[in-house]
């Protein structure tokens, strides 16, 4: 599952899958809210982290692959930037997890509906993602990646007229 959708129809499929995934975290959330066992909180955070990591980190990884940067030689900046990007995204995932659990803890297991949980999930992710794409560290990383991509294509594919996808 990837949070960047690739076509007009599969975007509903991906979004639906994301909803189902959030729903699968809902039951552990209710359990945590009903007895607040520290171990359950940890389980919950792992679930959210795993889901978020897959949806977002995979999206950026596939975007970078789409730009052809996976084929860069080791000496170029591509792999370095990918590692850096991965690191930034991991920090962001933690922020999302903390944000979701913090907001969820304002509810009780009786008041938190699945829809409310999903909206908290999405709103928190949207806020964290917005902070991410506006952060200088992320922009620097993306800029380096785009510059590397432009360099490769201008050098190697000018005869084709269009960048190869």
């Amino acid at each position: 599952m990837c949070s960047f959708q690739t076509g007009p129809f599969d975007k509903y499929l991906y979004s639906g899958a994301f909803y189902i995934q959030a729903a699968s975290c809902y039951r552990p959330v209710l359990e945590w809210l009903s007895n607040e066992e520290p171990e359950q909180r940890e389980t919950l955070m792992n679930l959210i982290r795993d889901s978020w990591y897959r949806s977002t980190v995979d999206a950026y990884s596939s975007a970078i692959s789409g730009m052809g940067l996976v084929n860069l030689e080791a000496s170029s900046s591509g792999p370095h930037e990918m590692a850096r990007l991965n690191n930034i995204l991991t920090i962001m995932v933690q922020k999302a997890v903390n944000g979701i659990t913090e907001r969820v803890s304002n509810y009780s297991h009786e008041t938190l509906t699945l829809q409310a949980f999903f909206e908290i999930w999405i709103e928190t992710c949207a806020k964290v993602h917005d902070d991410l794409i506006n952060s200088e560290e992320f922009i620097d990383c993306i800029t380096e990646t785009i510059n590397a991509s432009l360099k490769i294509y201008a050098k190697g594919n000018a005869d084709h007229g269009t960048m190869h996808e």
């Binding site: 949070s3 960047f4 959708q5 999405i122 993602h129 201008a154 084709h160 960048m163």
Partner: peptide
């Protein structure tokens, strides 16, 4: 050395700006 930018990259860029709102 101009090359055309694939439209799919532009789409991906726009998609990446607000993926959760879109979801």
């Amino acid at each position: 050395r101009p090359v055309n930018i694939p439209g799919s990259m532009i789409t991906l860029f726009f998609q990446s700006l607000r993926p959760f709102d879109e979801m």
